[in-house]
Simulated scan of single mutants.
Amino acid sequence: MGLDGLEGLQACFKDKIIPLLQEYFYDDHAKIHAVLNKNGMLKDKPMEGALQKLLGDFIDTDKKIYQITEASAWGIETFIRIYKDSSQAQSNETTKQTSNP
């Protein structure tokens, strides 16, 4: 893929991989979020105010809306989390919280 560091990896995911996942999953961002192991590349986008009232009759209000986060904020750990077992990631996070007072 011709990647030359973290910036290249960020751009590759932003411009190539995530759009391919969007196409593959027919823009079902919940599935994309699951495939990425909830690593932080997508975040919940709350639907509020007039938009919610306007679209409330036409969409499933239980379904979450996602937006892609800023690619420059994706660090190495973001990419590693794609492959980590979610229970292992939670265990590591708990360890970090208990070791840092």
Rank of each mutant, 00 (worst) to 15 (best):
A11W: 08
Q22K: 13
L6M: 07
L9V: 06
I32G: 01
H29Y: 15
P101M: 10
I17N: 03
P19Q: 05
I80D: 06
F79R: 01
K63G: 05
D57V: 09
E23L: 12
K16Y: 13
A73M: 15
E23Y: 10
K84N: 12
A50E: 15
W74A: 02
Q10D: 01
A11M: 11
P46G: 08
N100D: 13
L9Y: 05
I17T: 00
D44M: 14
T69P: 00
A50V: 09
A71N: 08
K16S: 13
Q97C: 11
I17A: 01
I76M: 15
I65G: 09
K96E: 10
N92G: 11
A11D: 10
I18M: 02
F58R: 11
I18C: 02
K38V: 03
E77G: 08
K38R: 13
S91C: 15
A34W: 10
Q67H: 14
A89N: 06
Y66A: 00
H33C: 08
M41D: 04
A34S: 12
E7L: 15
P46A: 09
H29E: 15
V35K: 07
G49F: 04
E93D: 10
T78E: 02
A71I: 03
G49N: 05
Q97M: 15
Q52M: 12
T78Q: 05
I65H: 11
Q52C: 10
I32Q: 01
H33D: 04
Y66Q: 00
Y26S: 15
Y66M: 05
E23I: 11
K53W: 08
D62F: 09
G40V: 00
F13T: 03
V35Q: 07
L55G: 07
N92Y: 12
T78K: 05
I82V: 02
M41G: 00
